[in-house]
Design a protein around this nucleic acid. Structure first.
Length: 468
RNA sequence: GUCCCCAUCGUCUAGAGGCCUAGGAUACUGCCCUUUCACGGCAAUGACGCGGGUUCGAAUCCCGCUGGGGACGCCA
């Protein structure tokens, strides 16, 4: 039997990072077994579902380069089928009408709570005859959960999980307005979609038992379950939307690369020995449920940032240019023309080694596009002594042939000048760096001079000398 | 409150009874490399929550405690 998994987010906000990890695990699992990953939008809550949120899910997955198979299923479209199954359960005597009002249920829960019992529906209408039904009240349909014994399920991550049936109340299948609820819809869809493995967040663990019983009542094949632990915030609490969990687009805007996010998320709860840097290819080859940990992990920006730095260094220069330009344009209000773009492209090898995010890369790239004012440290470097050396450079560099104007050629030449004057090389390079970039920290000055070219280099140099 | 789950360096984790005087990654500190900064290299600090068992032997198995988390909706 081939593997079919699904990612089933509800479109009530953005695609948050915990959901992204669930999607990633499903995707890797499907790819590993050469199965399918289907996408199902759980939009049955009409009040909270929005089209924007649906778009955000698609966009988020696309950005993360997590693809899905087949056309996404919109759960709401399948409403009639869900109702059909509810009616079938009714006919089988595995479900019944309940006429309790929401207020009545609230009191019921409070009373149970007061007695130290679990706040559950007490089964009031479970065995009553329909004749007792009050007039003018639209009933809900409830599932007849087993009342004695217990259910043991072997979860692929959690191991054996056992729940006493006393813990299970008769859940609502159909609301008073006739629409199906989550637990029903999920089971019907999972069955109809031929889902073999359900990989989802730990917070659904208790739903597993409710859903399991519907599968049994319908005599449908029961899928395998794998409940992966949740991601926690730095404070150790669930990283939920309410706690300000961020959508994937926020991570994109913070300058993270999708491959870095994927690698980071993968290592949050899954491991392969001591491997840390894991390519997608290896991830697909290695991924399994056996090595998913059972304890929740805290989200750590610092480690993500480190990983991002790694992938930034490895990334293709042209790609980084394309990625960084929007950051430059939006954050600094500078428009990047083709000439500037070319400088960025040629300077990228030196730039990318020194940035951990695209935001940092944008900031560090600025000097290539627009000459930058001298910052405080650069001013200090260009004191009397510094200016003196700069002047020397200003007079010597024009004589240096254009054909030798390369990183190596320039280094040799400037080393030579420094030696002549019995200066440490840094005494020569720091004033140059300050004049060329406005800063005391940058890529190699020889690299920068080469990228800028002779004309631009001298232009910048003279501009600083003139300004002093 | 009831039920369920979890528990190794600050954080992410390796560890499936002897390979563990507990390994890797990250962060922090120091040193080296070096035109600055990063990268890289080396080193140092740093953990099996507690208490009982089982066993010749426990981070690993069992029980209890403590701590953390999750679920208890006509939300998904």
């Amino acid at each position: 039997m081939s593997v079919v998994v699904r990612f089933a987010p509800s479109p009530t906000g953005y695609l948050h990072i915990g959901s992204a990890r669930t999607a990633l695990f499903n995707w890797l699992f499907a790819r590993h077994y050469q199965g399918k990953m289907l996408l199902r939008i759980e939009d049955t809550d009409r009040a909270r579902s929005t089209q924007e949120a649906v778009e955000a899910i698609y966009k988020g997955l696309e950005w993360l380069e997590i693809g899905w198979d087949e056309t996404p299923v919109h759960q709401f479209d399948r409403l009639e089928r869900h109702v059909e199954i509810a009616n079938e359960l009714l006919k089988k005597g595995m479900a019944y009408y309940c006429y309790c009002s929401p207020e009545e249920l609230e009191t019921m829960r409070e009373e149970a709570r007061a007695k130290g019992l679990p706040p559950r529906y007490n089964g009031k209408w479970r065995d009553r005859s329909p004749e007792e039904a009050p007039k003018g009240i639209d009933p809900v349909v409830r599932f007849k959960s087993p009342q004695t014994g217990d259910t043991v399920i072997h979860d692929l991550v959690q191991g054996e999980v056992r729940v006493s049936h006393q813990q299970l109340d008769d859940m609502i299948l159909l609301r008073a307005d006739g629409t199906p609820t989550f637990n029903l819809s999920v089971v019907v869809d999972d069955h109809d979609m031929g889902i073999t493995h359900i990989i989802r967040g730990d917070d659904h663990l208790t739903n597993m038992f409710r859903q399991f019983n519907i599968f049994k009542a319908m005599e449908w094949a029961i899928p395998h379950y794998a409940h992966i632990p949740l991601i926690h915030g730095p404070d150790g609490a669930k990283l939920s939307k309410r706690h300000g969990a961020l959508g994937v687009e926020a991570y994109r805007d913070m300058g993270f690369l999708p491959e870095a996010i994927r690698n980071y998320l993968l290592r949050l709860g899954w491991s392969h020995g001591d491997e840390e840097i894991i390519s997608t290819k290896d991830a697909i080859q290695w991924f399994d449920l056996d090595h998913v940990g059972k304890s929740p992990a805290r989200f750590d920006f610092v480690k993500l940032t480190n990983l991002n730095g790694h992938y930034l260094r490895e990334a293709d220069n042209e790609r980084l240019v394309t990625l960084v330009i929007p950051f430059i344009e939006s954050k600094y209000g500078i428009s990047v023309n083709t000439e500037a773009r070319d400088l960025l492209r040629r300077g990228m090898t030196g730039l990318k080694q020194r940035a951990k995010t695209l935001i940092e890369l944008a900031e560090n790239s600025l000097f290539y596009i627009v000459p930058q004012p001298l910052d405080e440290a650069a001013q200090k470097i260009l004191n009397e002594e510094g200016l003196q050396i700069l002047k020397v450079m200003g007079s010597r560099l024009p004589c240096f042939p254009e054909t030798s104007w390369t990183e190596v050629g320039l280094e040799d030449y400037i080393r030579q000048i420094a030696e002549e004057r019995e200066l440490k090389l840094t005494k020569a390079t720091q004033p140059l760096r300050a004049a060329l970039t406005g800063k005391t920290v940058s890529p190699s000055v020889f690299d920068i001079m080469h990228v800028l070219g002779k004309d631009k280099t001298l232009e910048r140099l003279y501009a600083v000398l003139k300004g002093k």
